[in-house]
Design a binder for these strands. Structure first.
Lengths: 272, 272
DNA sequence: CAAATAGTGTCTCTAAGACAATATCAC
DNA sequence: GTGATATTGTCTTAGAGACACTATTTG
């Protein structure tokens, strides 16, 4: 019998065929649209970051930011690195979405993807944009059910519109799985990844889990509520929302100014 | 500019270094202990399956069942295959636990693991046991917090006791992360995987998500309640439990027999 | 009948939802 | 004052938890 050291010295890790491992990130942010009424607060929209592919395969198509896992890093570190490279911002949160390993999902060969969702504060994104290449863009996102039970995912940036159709496969353990019926010109199986990530984000937002990360350090309760509503597509009465998050925030003592209406208290997330 | 076909024909997927990819499965079941009182119902315990390693590394130590991902299969299929190979049973559920990719977690080299939790009905396991090798055993499982905020994971099978110590790292998005302080003789980072899987199972059990899979097709409400209590370690009054699951089950019309006390209605899970 | 589990009715309390009312700024 | 948002109070209702009580079997 050989020792463990002898075994390891002689171990050939290349004896088995290995897949390539990538990480894809669905980076969410919320952007406000300027309003013509100086008194009215601006509208908000949920966006995700897409990259226009500069090489084969899917040359010229839009895809999620992502890349190959490198030796010495964890998949989480890889995801953070990708986001930083594309946006210059380190995301506040990184939420696992799932592993996508279906054979044939990448024409280059055996490639499995670890998908993460991350949330960037709209503020941070606005400040660090500019050095962006024109092939990285934030797309407005909509995700709706039709009468036929199918889901329609619509991504829009200026004149570019991508529209994918998906069917819900099954949804055990809180996680939904989707099947792509029409990829709507998105690269790879990224329509599926985006749908899965959004579903995960929505269920977290219901529990107030991810919503703080969309906002800067201090925020008003109305801003916070709007974040939740934009994500979940569910409106709730302000009085009730305030009661529910009361324990998760603390007052800063400061107020908003010059908004054309009554100023609002600024809050900060309370450490639990 | 070359075409996509030309690109793919010339693509060398081996140009980058790749990790090996494995799947590890935490297979749960519930076993009942025979009681000396003929009237009293048997006690139940939560168990997981461990395999005694027959080769380096960690030769002779206990480890989770698992194996390398093979070309042409998804990680979920790989997990199911591993469970089937070790138990002869196809699990009712397969729940993603996380990806473990920390450098150095496997002495053989760069190996990342996709962990799944699965639930087997105690019935099915009992029927198909016997052809088991002696190196696959069901261990009783306990997982408790101490006063110091550390967690103690205890696994026991006959005279073998494995006892690991873990610290909770952070717990965003409902998923807890643990750091191993003492692996308690478990192979690799499997103490961490087990702790993470159990935490995930517990939170699912609270929502009645996984508890049905522990039982055969038909069951009594008391059995169902006991399953939940064994997993979550939280007891609840029978009257209240019945109210809460009322919508998730249907009566079969049949009753239990010969239990030394009043017979119980048999129920079946209601398809939603 | 005794021991043990099966099953029901109902009270209380909390939290969610609905609604109404009041407060405060910029212009 | 007007238009907008901010903030609070309270009524109603749904559901969780606690308790007390009744029902049914086997030995």
């Amino acid at each position: 019998m050989i020792s463990e050291k002898e075994f390891l010295d002689g171990y050939d890790i290349g004896a088995f065929e290995r897949p390539s491992v990538t990480t894809d990130v669905v980076a969410f942010t919320i952007r406000s649209e300027t309003n013509d009424n100086y008194r009215q607060d601006s509208d908000s929209k949920l966006c995700i970051l897409l990259i226009r592919r500069g090489e084969h395969p899917y040359l010229g198509r839009w895809a999620l930011p992502g890349g190959f896992l490198q030796p010495g890093e964890t998949v989480e570190q890889c995801a953070l690195r990708e986001i930083r490279e594309e946006t210059g911002v380190t995301p506040a949160s990184l939420m696992p979405v799932g592993v996508f390993s279906e054979p044939g999902r990448d024409p280059r060969g055996w490639i499995i993807s670890n998908a993460y969702a991350s949330v960037l504060s709209g503020d941070a994104v606005r400040q660090s944009s500019g050095d962006d290449a024109a092939d990285a863009q934030w797309f407005d996102l909509r995700f709706e059910t039709g009468d036929d039970g199918l889901y329609r995912l619509t991504l829009r940036y200026e004149s570019v519109t991508l529209s994918a159709i998906l069917a819900e496969e099954d949804s055990r353990f809180g996680q939904s799985a989707f099947r792509v019926i029409d990829s709507g010109d998105l690269a790879f199986d990224h329509a599926k990844i985006i749908a899965t990530a959004l579903t995960a984000l929505r269920s977290d937002a219901k529990k107030f889990d991810a919503i703080f990360d969309f906002l800067p350090e201090t925020f008003t309760l109305t801003e916070l509520q709007k974040v939740q509503e934009v994500i979940t597509d569910i409106t709730i009465l302000p009085a009730n929302f305030r009661r529910k998050i009361a324990d998760l925030v603390t007052e800063t003592g400061a107020y908003t100014q010059g908004a054309g209406h009554r100023p609002a208290r600024l809050y900060r997330r309370r450490k639990p």
